[in-house]
Structures are given as structure tokens and as C-alpha cells.
Design a protein around this nucleic acid. Structure first.
Length: 606
DNA sequence: TTGGATTTGGCGCGAGATTG
DNA sequence: CAATCTCGCGCCAAATCCAA
């Protein structure tokens, strides 16, 4: 096999078959292998392969991509899901009714059946007339076949005979001769109705909810095909929510079954904890180990949606998985499994096609210009990075973690044995290096620093730059730069109002807690204008600006008590000094804000 | 009228490659 | 090593067209 040019891993996969024939010998009628091939060895080692651990090469999803992706996934799960599930219920009702009618009329002669069908068609058309609606046409021209409107000459998708048949009680799949489009059907009635009422895309009755932004329906009404598509999109959206916000691996998410979610409530009924029971596959071949994850409300909602979404397919196939293949064709497997990757990327394209424009896509392209290729691993890696490095960023804000709290994240992500905590720590180290390199580049670009630590950090960055000279710093030897800045990076903790170059000996935040031995800063206790470890950079400007704006708004209140007014004015002045420090293009950088000892610093409140 | 033909997109699978 | 990813191939279903 090796001579045939196969890589060792590929050869190992083939050898595994031989091993399986022995392992499963008691279950095989003929092809069993009675002797053990290569006793005590694995196919991997027999094939001569060896594992060389390298650097983690799964890319992190850029913030510009994960933020809208998560926002739209949550929108699907929280808002659109209602319409999608309701439409499916409507379609099920229509089909059941159609089946009843067909069965009831099976014994009648052809003419009689036809006249009943035409009568029901007339009833349906009358109902559309009452509601001011048109004859249903499909949303898309399925195979390029189109219909040309006899009056306007416009090209539209074809007439949705499928839906009309449901209302008229016809199963054209079973009895093609009953198709209403045939001359013996009712093309006369339908053509007349279109001339009178016009057409309507989709045509199902379930109303479409208003979009949060525009107040208009978020899409046209459903037809059977579009409904199936949106169900798959909803499944993908739920996957994004589960994968990203829980930090579970793909195999663990896909092992979730109906009823895997449990909620612990306090005595007063308030929700304390959402728990997911699933199976962790880590180093175990074949069978996994039941494990429990603690998660947050958005994931619980996504699972609730999945339970309803998977009900139909699950019932038809007799599975309890939350991830069935939704189409009910024969010869399909029961579980989405690896197809989820294609589905996720289809979801990305769907969002752009449906809700974005060429100029302003919903999910922007990746840095190389091509669409970002989503894979399942990226989500876990990205959330680990966010938890480690931006616990208060846009993602945290989106899921209502208003108060920056690393602990809250760790509460749901770190409790299980899935090794997620270790992953977070690995990402923290990487993030710190990335962040310090941003500092370095900004410094080379002339950016200025504020806060008490500004001088110390500025000097350290300049030293590094000096040592790299005479190379132009921007194209300097990056690996060497990483090494040089490594120790500084390890102390860096990014915060909303200031970054902390943490030194436990001088950290003010640690004065406020009693237990010694803290290994990191208490971000919620940060006093960025006083603490010698605080460094304020351009990226913190919006937060400070917001603080100033809020204070100014309060100052406009005429009946403000005088002491409070004085305090607020002092705060505005202090913020302005900070903003001045980091203002681009001003004179030489100054040290931290002097003479600011009289009161507790500007605390993190947002 | 009827039984293919046509077209399209989605799905399942397998082989090999990649990743942690 | 096990899990996961990639991607082409082939199959299938759906809706309608079209020739016999």
C-alpha cells in the first residue's frame, strides 16, 4: 500500500478494515477473521505512521464574521423559528386533510371526483378572493422553467400546483392523471383566477412575522420547497448557537438527544442553571461517556427549537437525535453528521443572498476575498479565544453579559471534563501575544498611550524596537519579536477601559479583596486612572467617550444637587484628560494622570 | 394523455488528507 | 490515533416540458 503512494494515515484507514474484521468476528456471518492480525498493535502503527504534534492550525473566526453570524443565528432561533415551525404544522395539516379526502373519494367514479375537486378549488379561490390574495406561485423557478404572465408578459416562477392540489384534495404524485394543469383538470379556473386576483409568491397561509429592524415581514410566504430550505437553515443556525456558545465539540453536540436539556430552578422559580446531557467522545473508540455541560439561556432556547424541528423527521425514522436529516426521502441516512459543514456554509450564503447586498454582505468575505469557510472546529476555538481575551466584547454584550465577568463564562464552559478550560488557557496565551503585537505596531505607527503604566510599557516597546534595528520595525522578524515581547505579553489582560499589565505587587484591584495569591487582575475592580498597571490605548476611547457623554447628560439636569454636580464635573474633566492623552497626533506622550488620588477611580460599570 | 426527458440542487458516500 | 475535513461522483426527487 505504501508502494502505491498512499500516505501512512491512508494506509492505516485501510488496515483498520482488517482489524475490524477480527474485532467484530462474533457478529459476522462469513467474512470473520479468526486470528488476530498484528497482535497488540494498531493499524496506525502497522502502517508506519507517527503523530507529530504541531501548532494549532484551525483558524479563529474573525470578529467581523462571527459577530453577524451569531447575531443572525440567534435571530433565526429566537424569531424566525416560530414562523418556520408554524408553516410546517400548516403543511402537515394540509397533507393530512388531502389524504383524508383522497381516501374518502377513492370509490367514486372519475367525473364525480373531478367535479368535487373543482368545487373545492372554487372554495379555495373564493377564500383567496376574500383575503385579497393571489393564486400561489413558487418562490423560485426550480429547474429554470418559468411561467410568463399572459397579461403583463412578466416572467415568474411557475404556478404552485402542489399547494393548489393540497387544497383541492389531489395527490398528483400518486395519480398524475389528476393534475389540475392538464386540460381535463382546471386550467380554465386557475387562469381566470389569476386574471382576476393575480399571483402570490409562496402562497401558504401562515403569516410572516415582522422584521425587528424594518417592521416588514422578514420574507415572502412559504411554499413547500422554501419551507424545507428554511428548516435546514434553522437547523444550521441552531448549530451555530450551540457550537459557539457552549464550546462543545462537534461530536458532543451531535450526540445530543431529545430531552437532553434540564433546568435547575431556585425555590422562587428563577432559573439557576441550564444543563445539557450528552456524550463526550474523547479517546474512546466506539462508545463515549455520558457527560453534563452547564450552559446559558440562548443555547437552551436553540435546543428547545431543535426538539420541535426534529420531531417530524425523528418520528418518521424512529430516532431521538436532535440532528436528523430533515428531508424525509427514502434512502437517506438518519443523522446530518458531516453534512453539517456544508449546511453551515450554505447558511452563510443564504444569509448573504437573502438579507445582504453585494456591497454590504451580512457575512463579509474572509481576508483573502473568498467567502469564509466555516468548519465545526472553528467555533470552539473562537469562543475559547473570546472568553480568554475579550470577556466583555461585542459577543458578550450580545448574549447579555453586561457585566464583564470571566467567572460567568467559565461557569458554563469550564465545568465539564471536555478539556475546554485548557483550551481557553492556550488561547489566552495566544491572544496576549497577538495583543502585545498590536501594541507594538500601533506604537511604531505613532499611537500614544495613557494611564499610569504608559511610560513603563512605552519604554519596553521602544526597547524591543531598538533591538530589532536596523530592520524597519514593521517588517521586523516577527517570531523574534514574539519572543522578545513574550514576558510582557504574559502580564497583559485586555480590559474595557484600560489594559492591565498585571503585577500583583502593585495592583490596586487586589487591595480590595482579602484572599492572597491572585494570579490575575480583578477586571471588575479596575481603577484605570490610578492603578500603576493600567495602560489606556486608542481602542478604549469609545468606552471613555460613553462615560463622558453619560455624565454630561446628567449635568444637564437642572435640579441636580450641588455636591453631585461637582463630582460629575470632576469626572468629566478626568475623562477628558484621559482622552487627551490618547489623542492621536498630539504632542509628546505624557505619563499617567497625576494628582488623581482624591477619590475612587472610574469604575467599570457597563 | 401519457410516459419519458430535462434540468437542477441536494444528499450520501468514500477515499484521502488534515488536524489536535 | 481518532476525529474531522474536503470534494468529486453518482443518485435521486421534483416540477414541468415535450414527443409520440
Amino acid at each position: 500500500m505504501r508502494l502505491a503512494g498512499l500516505r501512512p494515515v491512508a494506509a492505516a484507514a485501510l488496515l483498520r478494515i482488517v482489524f475490524d474484521l477480527h474485532e467484530l468476528r462474533h457478529h459476522l456471518p462469513t467474512a470473520r477473521l479468526s486470528f488476530e492480525p498484528w497482535p497488540g498493535r494498531s493499524p496506525f502503527s502497522v502502517a508506519g505512521a507517527k503523530y507529530v504534534a504541531g501548532e494549532n492550525r484551525t483558524p479563529r473566526i474573525p470578529e467581523a464574521i462571527i459577530t453577524p453570524l451569531l447575531a443572525w443565528s440567534l435571530r433565526y432561533v429566537n424569531y424566525y423559528a416560530g414562523d418556520i415551525l408554524a408553516s410546517r404544522a400548516e403543511l402537515d395539516r394540509l397533507e393530512a386533510k388531502r389524504n383524508r379526502l383522497v381516501a374518502a373519494e377513492a370509490g367514486l367514479d372519475h367525473t364525480d371526483r373531478r367535479s368535487r375537486q373543482r368545487q373545492r378549488l372554487n372554495t379555495y379561490i373564493a377564500a383567496l378572493r376574500r383575503q385579497g390574495r393571489g393564486i400561489p406561485i413558487w418562490t423560485t423557478a426550480h429547474n429554470g422553467t418559468t411561467r410568463t404572465d399572459p397579461q403583463s408578459g412578466k416572467v415568474t416562477p411557475p404556478i404552485n400546483y402542489h399547494l393548489i392540489h393540497l387544497h383541492a384534495g389531489i395527490d398528483a404524485q400518486v395519480e398524475p392523471a389528476m393534475h389540475l394543469g392538464l386540460t381535463t383538470g382546471a386550467p380554465d379556473l386557475i387562469a381566470a383566477a389569476i386574471a382576476e386576483l393575480g399571483t402570490e409568491i409562496g402562497g401558504m397561509d401562515t403569516p410572516i412575522s415582522a422584521d425587528l429592524d424594518t417592521g416588514l415581514p422578514w420574507r415572502t410566504r412559504f411554499d413547500a420547497k422554501v419551507l424545507a430550505l428554511e428548516e435546514v437553515m434553522l437547523q444550521s443556525a441552531a448549530y451555530v448557537v450551540c457550537a459557539y456558545l457552549s464550546g462543545m465539540r462537534d461530536s458532543e453536540i451531535q450526540a445530543m438527544k431529545r430531552g437532553c436539556l434540564s433546568i435547575t430552578r431556585a425555590e422562587d422559580g428563577a432559573i439557576l442553571r441550564h444543563r445539557i446531557k450528552s456524550t463526550a467522545y474523547k479517546g474512546k473508540r466506539g462508545c463515549g461517556e455520558e457527560t453534563e455541560w452547564v450552559t446559558i439561556a440562548p443555547v437552551a432556547e436553540a435546543i428547545a427549537v431543535l426538539e420541535r424541528l426534529s420531531a417530524r423527521a425523528g418520528q418518521a425514522r424512529g430516532t431521538t437525535t436532535l440532528w436528523p436529516v430533515l428531508t424525509l426521502r427514502a434512502n437517506t441516512k438518519t443523522h446530518v453528521s458531516a453534512e453539517i459543514v456544508r449546511q453551515l456554509n450554505r447558511f452563510r450564503d443564504h444569509l448573504n443572498d437573502r438579507f445582504g447586498t453585494a456591497q454590504a454582505p451580512i457575512i463579509p468575505a474572509s481576508p483573502n476575498g473568498a467567502p469564509w469557510r466555516l468548519t465545526t472546529r472553528q467555533f470552539r476555538r473562537t469562543i475559547a479565544w473570546h472568553i480568554a481575551n475579550r470577556p466583555f466584547g461585542t459577543i458578550a454584550g450580545m448574549i447579555q453579559y453586561k457585566h464583564a465577568s470571566v467567572a460567568a463564562f467559565e461557569g458554563y464552559a469550564g465545568s465539564s471534563r471536555s478539556g475546554f478550560r485548557g483550551e481557553i488557557e492556550a488561547q489566552r496565551a495566544l491572544g496576549q501575544i497577538d495583543d502585545i503585537l498590536v501594541y507594538f505596531d500601533d506604537r511604531q505607527g505613532g499611537a500614544r498611550l495613557g494611564g499610569p503604566a504608559a511610560n513603563r510599557i512605552g519604554a519596553a516597546l521602544d526597547t524591543a524596537a531598538h533591538e530589532l534595528a536596523p530592520l524597519p520595525a514593521m517588517i521586523a522578524d516577527r517570531p523574534r519579536l514574539r519572543t522578545m515581547l513574550g514576558s510582557l505579553a504574559r502580564t497583559l489582560h485586555v480590559g474595557p477601559l484600560a489594559d492591565c499589565f498585571f503585577d500583583p505587587a502593585t495592583a490596586l484591584c487586589l487591595n480590595r479583596i482579602s484572599e492572597p495569591g491572585a494570579t490575575g487582575p480583578m477586571i471588575a475592580m479596575c481603577e484605570p486612572v490610578r492603578c500603576p498597571n493600567a495602560c489606556i490605548a486608542e481602542r478604549h476611547r469609545p468606552a471613555w467617550q460613553r462615560g463622558a457623554d453619560e455624565a454630561r447628560l446628567l449635568l444637564r439636569e437642572k435640579r441636580l444637587p450641588e455636591p453631585q454636580r461637582v463630582t460629575l464635573q470632576a469626572e468629566v474633566a478626568r475623562i477628558e484628560r484621559v482622552l487627551e492623552q490618547i489623542a492621536p497626533g498630539a504632542a509628546t506622550p505624557r505619563t499617567g494622570v497625576a494628582g488623581e488620588g482624591e477619590e475612587a477611580g472610574f469604575r467599570v460599570t457597563g
